[in-house]
Nucleic acid binder design. Structure first.
Lengths: 238, 238
DNA sequence: TGCCGACGGATTCTGTAGAATCTGGTTGCC
DNA sequence: GGCAACCAGATTCTACAGAATCCGTCGGCA
């Protein structure tokens, strides 16, 4: 199935920042690049619009969504509500051993005095993914897990954009902070302290939100995409 | 734009119950019915899958989603989390006059001693929509409002299915109950009692969930759609 | 002889390609 | 500055290739 392959590839490129926000996606060009006709490309773009990573403008094709600081805040607020719901449902149901492994990994990261090397960045990200996945899978609500997955992808999109934007300035500090936030959550879960876990998760999401959105333009600087397409028209994808 | 028209029409039919859960949507047949070729139909089905009202099976087309009781519960849980978040954000920001109008309408409904006539059912539904819309629009979070809108559509789909299934048995009772729940929310909002409003909203959603899902099959009775398609094949759309 | 399951062709439907049409924006001319 | 031809690109249509399903036939077996 070609559509699915195109969806996955494009999603990776958008999330990975190789396709810039506001960029105009031309079906013909993508068709050439992927070596398929434009039909599956169109269908992939419709699917991506459903996921929320591109905007579809009638008769004017698709543009990669641009996220202003306000939108990031909005998405984070929704994500917080859902992740907290997941923690509430998961508390007391998560495999003890799994939590233990996570806790030790996080303690290791925090104890480390040297700055993070790049493979340790990967390790930190893996732990992050793992924790959130374990929680959403343990909440006994597949629909909730699916929704969280969707938001996580969006969230990763602007996290990576921010990362790229400012060349990891003081990222290492943020990673350590994140590890401590995660540890707080894990410890609360191990105590079966539901309220504490929810609080910790809420703080964690909002702190990430503040961090990852701080370099983004405010909505005044980057108005909603709808009316702005003409601006990026013609820039192509260089 | 034909695709959009097809999406809207099909969505209405699914939500309105004219297309039954599990029904197989054949592109050619739909193309004939809508008087377009099957390309926009395919695209519409992809969009509908994004919305969540149909499932796409590779090389076997689309089927209208079947909702088991568990899935309804899952969706309601997510909806509750989001609606509560919206109430939290909206409390203190909603136009006073708007709330007053709603309160009087709800009080009128509750005071009414005669059973609801059908135009009063419509009135009750309008008040329901209005309240939820006012809240999600006042929460200063368009993204959240969009998500809630999506879920509301799904929710309406199985509410209508339930309604149809059992011919309004004691629906009127439920409508009165709903009005009282709505009134509790409105009154809390008018007092700027954020916690109270959130609690009331949570109760309201879960009570609706229990009510609307009570006639649905459990997931054991209606297994995941994936393996069941052959069963409905050949029934056509008549 | 009557029933059952395997095999194979016919049919139906999905997925893709390429052509035709339509739309909106742009550019050059008056 | 206004208008009209032009052009790029989106949308839709038609046709076809491949996958899945259906249906009738055939051979084995009790």
């Amino acid at each position: 199935m070609r559509r699915k392959a195109v969806v996955e590839d494009l999603c990776c490129e958008i999330v990975g920042g190789r396709l810039r926000p506001g960029e105009h996606l031309v079906t013909r060009a993508l068709a050439d690049r992927f070596g398929v006709s434009h039909t599956p490309i169109r269908e992939a773009l419709i699917a991506l619009a459903g996921i929320g990573v591109v905007d579809l403008l009638p008769n004017r094709g698709a543009v990669v969504r641009r996220f202003s600081r306000d939108e990031v805040r909005e998405i984070c607020q929704v994500r917080r509500a859902l992740e907290c719901e997941a923690v509430r449902g998961a508390c007391g149901r998560i495999d003890e051993a799994e939590l233990l492994v996570l806790r030790e990994a996080l303690r290791g990261m925090i104890a480390r005095t040297t700055p993070f090397a790049s493979d340790q960045v990967a390790e930190a990200r893996a732990a992050d993914s793992r924790l959130h996945d374990v929680i959403s899978e343990s909440a006994a609500n597949p629909f909730l897990a699916k929704e969280i997955g969707r938001l996580k992808m969006l969230f990763r999109a602007f996290r990576d954009a921010s990362w790229q934007r400012e060349e990891n300035r003081n990222d290492y500090h943020r990673l350590g902070e994140e590890a401590r936030e995660h540890l707080t959550i894990v410890e609360a879960l191990m105590r079966n302290d539901r309220a504490g876990a929810v609080r910790a998760m809420s703080r964690h999401i909002m702190s990430g939100c503040r961090y990852w959105s701080r370099t983004l333009p405010t909505s005044a600087e980057a108005p909603a995409v709808g009316g702005q397409v003409a601006r990026v028209k013609g820039k192509g994808k260089s």
